[in-house]
Structure formats: C-alpha cells, structure tokens
C-alpha cells in the first residue's frame, strides 16, 4: 500500500467578514489523499476552491473545520516545510534581487551549506534556462522568466512534495512544455506533485490522478486514464489508407454491428505545431518554416499516436 503524503480530512473553509458574518463557503468538507510519487491535479473552474485547498495545506489560510496535513503534520509544524517546495500562482518573489541572490536567500532559509547552495542554485538556473540572465534583477525579467525563477526557488531544497499552483500560468508554449517535462521528471525522481490548474490539457498530459472541484465540493476523483476512457467507442489509428481500404473497413465495422463515426487524418494540437515550427526555425534560421499540414503520426512508447515532424521520420 502506498504512503499517503498529502491528506485533507473534512477540510472546510468559510470566508467571513470583519464581523464574523459568513461571506463565501469556499471549500466544503474536502477529503483527499495523495500518495507518494504520484502527480495529482486539482481541476476546476475559477473560484472552485483549488487555490484555497493549496493555501490551506500550506498554512496560508486557516481551516474553518477539518485538517490539512502534509507528511501527517499540519501547517503549525514548520519542520515539514523542509520537505516541501511551493510555486505560487504568481511568482511572488523579491524583484530587487537577482536570480542568483534569490536562490541563495531561499537556500539559506533551509540551512543549506553555502557550497551546496551555490551549486544547486547554478544547476537550477541552468535547468530553467536563465543562465544568461542570472545577474539581472528580477524587475528586469519578463513574466515567464520570473515564473522560471519561481520554479527554481520551489526546488532549491530538493523537496519530496512539490505543490504547484497554476504552474504553466504565464509561460509560453515552450515554457509550458518544459514545465510539463519537468513535472514528469520530478515524478521519475520519486517526488510527489500536487498541482492545480484550469488548463485541462496540462493536467491531462502529466497527472496520474485528478480531482475535480466545483463550488468548493469535490465532484470527481480518480486516475486520468480511466476517467478519460470513453467506454462505448473504439479508436484505431493507422497510417494513411486509400479510399478503397476505408470503405472495406466500414463494411467490416458494419458487419460487427458497429458504426464508423468519422474517417480522416489525425489532427495534431496547436501546441505541437507551434513547438515544431519553433524547433525548425532554430535549426534553420532565416528559412520559412513548413510545419503546418506536414504532421505525421508516430507510435509513442505507450502505443498511443503522437504527432511528429516529418523530418524526424514517420
């Protein structure tokens, strides 16, 4: 049985005004368990209680009822924070510091020895691709760059649990892809990731399990692949077939009592298209990119189709 590292029990949050009158019931009796090594996504529209849940877990808000535990400890025990990394929704960082200084500062808060701190800060800055700007104050950074520094600070202590609030917010598609790759990499390192987002594609790409919140209530929870499986349809992808073959397949499907709902070329995602064009432009500077309409599918490791550039071989 896997170890539960993040847990909420009957977690409730009611926002009140100065006089104690109830204003908003932000979270209603949330019971949640996140196991070690999994990526858990909290989904929901704006105001559904995702960020409230995270802030309750981190002690930034006090629960009206119930408990929010990480490693079995509530927020009053600051020692647990030694094993937690947190990336807030907006990267709330000190803009007058440089990337190097900010990582050094956060490293000091963890009592990381100076040499290790320096090494880790350098590694993280390289990892988030800001080596060229590490001596500049954050106030000179773009939003995406600040976000990257925010991610680096969340990882400065090599945490066991990483809590990411809207991790791809403010990032360009490349940054988004990098972030998702990084989250998957964290999972490979055995870390537990709790993220919340309303960008469904991001969650779908990386999460093992998701919980869907709506108006402060947990509406659905489970594994992404099982939740997303549509049980009354069968999806078969092949390389491009001639019309005759398609007709033949229709007949076969009909023979078995099924119905072909659509036939056509597989559509790639805009994110894939964008990344392919950027990559092509980087490889051949000055040449117009020809990514559009040239996508082909390649079998991925898991057997599902994934789009790829024709130049990579199809």
């Amino acid at each position: 049985m896997s170890e539960v590292v993040v847990e909420t029990r009957n977690l409730t949050k009611i926002y009140r005004d100065f006089w104690g009158r109830r204003k908003v019931h932000a979270l209603k009796s949330l019971d949640l368990e996140i196991n070690r090594g999994e990526i858990f996504g909290l989904l929901g529209p704006n105001g559904s209680g995702k960020t409230t849940t995270i802030k309750l877990l981190l002690g930034l808000l006090f629960p009206s009822e119930g408990e929010a535990l990480i490693f079995g400890r509530n927020a009053s025990d600051v020692r647990r924070n030694e094993r937690i990394g947190y990336l807030p929704e907006e990267s709330y960082l000190y803009r007058f510091l440089t990337a190097e200084e900010i990582l050094d500062f956060y490293g000091k808060l963890f009592h990381i020895p100076a040499a290790v701190r320096r090494q880790r800060a350098n590694d993280l800055i390289e990892m988030v691709g800001l080596g060229y700007a590490k001596k500049r104050q954050l106030k000179e950074y773009s939003k995406g760059m600040v976000r990257r520094v925010g991610l680096a600070q969340a990882l400065i202590n090599d945490p066991e649990v990483v809590i990411l609030d809207e991790p791809t917010s403010g990032l360009d598609p490349i940054g988004t892809r990098d972030m998702k790759d990084l989250i998957l990499d964290l999972k490979r390192q055995g870390k537990t990731v709790l993220m919340c987002s309303h960008l469904l594609a991001d969650v779908q790409d990386v999460c093992d399990r998701i919980g869907i919140l709506f108006q402060g209530e947990l509406k659905e929870i489970g594994r992404v692949d099982s939740l997303l499986t549509v049980k009354d349809t069968t999806d078969i992808q092949t390389t491009t077939l001639p019309d005759a073959a398609v007709e033949e397949i229709r007949e076969v499907v009909k023979k078995y009592g099924g119905e072909v709902k659509s036939v056509g070329n597989t559509r790639t995602t805009l994110e894939d298209l964008f990344l392919r064009i950027v990559e092509e432009s980087r490889l051949h500077p000055g040449r117009r990119a020809h990514g559009a309409g040239n996508a082909v599918s390649v079998p991925s490791e898991e057997g599902t189709a994934a789009s790829a550039d024709p130049s990579n071989g199809g």
Binding site: L58, L60, V78, N81, P88, Y92, F110
Partner: peptide, 9 residues
C-alpha cells in the same frame, strides 16, 4: 512575497 517565506521552514 511573504508566501514564499512562510512556506519555507
């Protein structure tokens, strides 16, 4: 900015 402080130990 205090969020990134109090969520550290």
């Amino acid at each position: 900015t205090i969020h990134t402080i109090v969520t550290k130990p």
